[in-house]
Amino acid sequence: MTRTAALGIGDEVVGVPAHIGLFYDAEPERRQRRLEFLRPAIEDRRQGIMLLAPPGIADSALRQLEADLGGSLEDDVRRGRVVVAHYDKDPDLLLENIRGALDTLAAAGHDVVRLFAQVAWGAEGFPFPEDHLWAESRLNDVLAGTSVICACAYDVSELPDRALISGGLEAHPCVVIGGRLTESPNYLTPPEYMRSFLRNARSGAGL
């Protein structure tokens, strides 16, 4: 039987594990959605939290979350219930970083882990788009069999259409658009994603 949990956004419920493309429009909505998504874990100490962001952004993302919450997470960070992890320019190392942090949280016995990943094109330490999208696709394999609900946050106000379709929609089984959860209309499994990438590379149609 598939396990489910509250997404935290609206009244939506997701199967666990979940890999969700969270599309938001500019920073205020990102902060709102992040707070909604993480609040169930903040209120339920059996759940773990992982924030994933580029090196120069991760700490400020944590501070911002604390400001939005109106309280400090310092104690949770010290106890390992809240983990801040960094993107890596190397997409394979990025996956290893995620895997390592999730293993640590799982070993600590957390019932569910909520992973909020902040996509930041062009930020220092962030992979090139083609590498990032491959890592997004392969993240589905990393999450399989875990108790992780992962939301990858994409700013549609900055996103070119090709990256939106080829990356955001193809790499995530589910998407949140306008605060509503739905299956991704364009989802490809990791092998399908790779075949699609190679077809496009061959035809010169881009990624």
Binding site: P160, L181, T182
Partner: peptide, 26 residues
Amino acid sequence: PLRGSMPGAVLIRSETTGRSRTAPWE
């Protein structure tokens, strides 16, 4: 199309004047 619990559609519009169909990073 959107599928699952909420049928519907996603619409995307973008100006393509002067753009090739090659990804900008290719």
